[in-house]
Structure formats: C-alpha cells, structure tokens
C-alpha cells in the first residue's frame, strides 16, 4: 500500500504540474486549466503548474475584496472555499498524505539517513494561527491607499512559492534577479529551514505552519473517508504510535486532526485488526486475519 501511495503522490504532483514548455516560453503556464483548484500546496506561479493554488487565490480574493465590492463584484472567495471544502469533506488531510507535492518532498527528505526527532505537539497549533492571521485577517484588514491587501502568507512565509516559483523564475527570467532583496532572502531562509528540518523530523512544515493542512484538519471528524478504531480489538499495545509520521497516537485519538491517512498504522503496525478504513461509516476493508475481539489488559 505504501508503494501505491507513493505512486499516487507522484501522479498527483505531475497532474498539478504538467506544463513542461517553460524552458522555451520562459514563463508560467497561462492556459484555461488554471481554473482548476490544486488539492495540495502547489504554487500557481510554478512555471509547470496547471492548477491554481487555493491559498494564493483565497488571499488574492480577500485582499481585493474592498476594491471588488466597490465595483459591484462579489468575490468573497466562495468558489475557492467551496472547492477545498468539498475536498476536505471527502478526504480531509488524506489530501496531505496522498496528493500534496510539498508534503511528498518533505517525505523524501526525511528518508535521508540521520538521527530523527519528533515535533513538539504544541507547535501543531501554529498552523491554525497562520490560517487565520496570514491567510484571512491580514489580507482583509491591512489595505493600501487603493484598498488592496497583500497575500501575506505567500509574501512572507510560503516555502513552496520560493521553491516552485521563486527559484525557477529567477533562473528563467534574468531581469527579475535585479529586484530581489530582503523579502526574498527572508523567504529563502524559511525554505532552507523547513527543507533542513524535514531531514530530521517528519513533515515539520505540514505539522506546524501549513494553513491548507490546518483547513483540511478541520474536517477530521466529518470527512467521508477516514480510519476507524475497533475498541473491542485494541489491546493498547501502542504499536500504532511508533509508525505514525505525524506523531498521532491513533488508538487514543482516532479522529486526530493531524492524521494524513497514510495507512501506516493500519497496514504496518496493528496486529489485532483494530484499525480499518471506512467511507461514510461503511467499512471499505478490514484486515481479516481471523482474530476475534480481544479483552483489554
């Protein structure tokens, strides 16, 4: 199953970035596919990107809201929220585990042999602050003289933007190189921080900062596809705690907002068939090894 997940990650990454004419056009894809929402964090100014980034678009729409309203345009970001809301309702953070290029990159970096460390659980609250403050409040509230706000998360934080858009476009368009300054170096340092951290800890950006991960985390209890714990089979052996890349203690928190449904706990850890995948309450598959429910110690 892990191999299937890897292939899905590769295919999804490719589908979101399937325009490969940029070495000749020296700019980004500008076709109609960009009306489609990327499920994961994938910068729309990446030269190969064929979808829009929901975080970037939402910030742009909120930043331009006053201006739009003055011109009789009701661009509240509903189509963007609706798109990621439907995805969240279907899959929640399974998107993170299966369809996000930046999450996939962090997983690859984590394979580099080194000493591994955890991420303090308290830091996982940070991403909700980034969602609320940098994606919603600041673009809406801080506007310039013409009534336009900035995409604060893109501008000051997003390492995916620096990696997928910043570096390739600086390479493709030499005239841009004269314009880089403190803002760019700040973002570049953030990118290096998270790429380096990902070698030593599993998915640090996803766990501490990503506003899109925070949004999908809101659906952890109500998403259609999720894992379920059969308490009558769980022996509290804690095997699931040790395999989880997100630091989830599955048997203690089966609807944990951090769970990316990588299925490691179900397939690699639980020997008692206590974990199963369900869709809307109906089990999709239960690993059946002929075990009967066990009594708890």
């Amino acid at each position: 199953m892990e191999a299937v997940r890897k292939w899905v990650q590769v295919i999804m990454g490719f589908l979101m970035n399937s325009s490969w004419s940029f070495p000749f056009t020296r700019t980004i894809y500008q076709g109609p596919l960009k009306v489609l929402c990327a499920p994961g964090l994938n910068c729309y100014s990446c030269p190969a990107a064929t979808t829009y980034c929901p975080l970037g678009s939402l910030q742009q729409l909120l930043g331009g809201l006053r201006f739009a309203l003055e011109n009789g345009q009701y661009y509240f970001g509903f189509s963007v929220l609706g798109s990621i809301g439907v995805l969240g309702g279907l899959f929640g953070r399974m998107i993170c585990g299966w369809a996000c290029p930046f999450g996939f990159l962090q997983e690859l970096l984590h394979k580099i042999p080194s000493r591994k460390f955890g991420v303090p659980r308290i830091l996982s609250q940070g991403k909700f602050v980034f969602l609320l403050v940098f994606v919603i409040i600041l673009p809406l509230a801080l506007v310039d003289a013409s009534g336009l706000g900035s995409p604060w998360f893109c501008k000051f934080i997003c390492p995916a933007g620096t990696l997928e858009a910043g570096l390739p476009l600086l390479w493709l368009q030499p005239n841009l190189r004269n314009t880089i300054g403190l803002l760019f170096f700040n973002k570049f340092a953030i990118l290096l921080l998270f790429l380096g951290w990902a070698v030593f800890a599993s998915r640090p950006f996803c766990r501490t900062v990503c506003p899109l991960g925070a949004f999908y985390a809101l659906f952890s209890r109500v998403r259609l596809l999720k894992l379920r714990l059969d308490e009558s089979r769980c022996t509290n052996c804690k095997a699931c705690h040790h395999v989880c890349p997100m630091g989830v203690k599955f048997n203690e928190s089966p609807d944990d907002p951090e769970c990316i449904t990588c299925l490691a706990c179900m397939n690699k850890a639980c020997k008692f068939d206590a974990i199963s995948l369900e869709i809307g309450g109906i089990p999709l598959a239960v690993p059946d090894r002929g075990l009967s429910p066990v009594s708890k110690p």
Binding site: C43, T162, A165, G166
Partner: peptide
Amino acid sequence: GVATGEPGRVLEQAVQVCLSCIGI
C-alpha cells in the same frame, strides 16, 4: 462563487506571475 463569476477572476490571477510568491 461560480454564479458571481469568481472563477474568471481566479483564472485572471492564476495566469499572472505572482511576485509575492516569488518573494519580490
């Protein structure tokens, strides 16, 4: 959102290079 014509605006933004994303 679709009824208010928002996807057109999203597309307009998405086909332009976002200088904030790059960091400049």
